[in-house]
Amino acid sequence: MGQEIKKSLDLHGVVCPLNFVKTKLALETLNAGDWLEVILDEGDAMLNVPRSLKEEGHRIVKVTSLGNTYSVVVEKGP
C-alpha cells in the first residue's frame, strides 16, 4: 500500500442514503486515483455504501473492522 489517504470521513451514526451522499461529496473534492477513508457502521451502511461506490466506478482498496464500525478505503474512479 504505497498510497496515502487524502481524506477521512467519520460516518458513524449517519444513516443511508446520507452516508453515501456525504461519501460522494467527499470524493468530488479529490482527483481520480486518490484514496478516501470512510468510517461506516456495520449493517445497512456496510451493505450499501461499498456496493454503491463500486457501481459508480470506484474501487474498494481495503476494509478494516474497528469493532462495530469499519474503515473502508476507496480509490476514486476515473
Binding site: P17, L18, F20, V21, K24, L25, E28, E56
Partner: peptide, 11 residues
C-alpha cells in the same frame, strides 16, 4: 440528497 446521489448531478 436525491439529486446528489445521481451520478450526473452530484454536489
Amino acid at each position: 440528497s436525491r439529486h446528489i446521489l445521481l451520478k450526473d448531478v452530484g454536489g
